[in-house]
Amino acid sequence: MTGGQTFPRLALRHVALILVSIIFLLPLLWMVSSSLKSNASIFTFPPQLIPTHPHWSNYKNAVTYIPFFTYLRNTAIISVATVVGTLFSCTPAAYAFSVLRWRGRDALFYVVLATVMIPFQVIMIPLYIMFRDLGWLGTLLPLIVPPFFSVFISSWFSSGLAIFLLRQFFLTLPRDLFEAASIDGASRWTSFWRVALPLSRSGLITVGMFSFLSSWTMFVAPLIMLNKGSLLTLSVGLQQFQSQHFTAWNYLMAASFIFTIPVLILFLVAQRYFVQGIALSGLKG
């Protein structure tokens, strides 16, 4: 299908799209290419686009240069906890804000939306002190517990947005469905667990993925809350490749690539949900 366009116009679009794709892909390819260069060939100018002798051993060196697997484990624990916690706390809330009927519902929903405006900078200092007083600072708890109470911090995905998205999915379910269920004697819990949830699977997947992506990549919260070397996440730990005088760029690129691979795979496997979720968050506002 060409949408009935003339040939020169179509060719022009292809040329433009290829150029744009190169601009967006080149930095990523450059990361992979640099990660395979030897210590000597990484510091040459002009640089080689494709290394003649790929140094696969860089990957082995990168993961031993810093305690990579410790950081990987911490990042994975926090991310899994964030996904579970977000779904646990935001799904029932979204259900209450869409299917259930109660007084003050819509007013309180505005409060949910308004929380998106709270900058992390405002609450980070009190949270830091609170977690210190609770004795959580030497542990991963400051990043594991809040998602279970619909609080997590990243620059682009928040619990407000998670509740909003899930609510959008619940709102598309036909009202009759719940009425039919309650006539059949289904309890409130059954309506939620057996009717609403299975029908909102794609919404749950979308929100789960977004919370995974945002916690895997988040930076500020772990930077402040995880003040012990063995607790760092990859986001924060990667800084150790850089020192005042020298940066092992090839190792750093290798480590950055490994760090990116899980989200790359997630995206390639579940592109559909990403696109759907992003479009939904931007359109129905």
Binding site: L213, S256, Q271, F274
Partner: peptide, 13 residues
């Protein structure tokens, strides 16, 4: 996908 890909790369990376 090519244009979207950078959007999922961690900000630190």
């Amino acid at each position: 996908a090519a244009i979207y890909l950078p959007a999922i790369v961690p900000p630190v990376a």
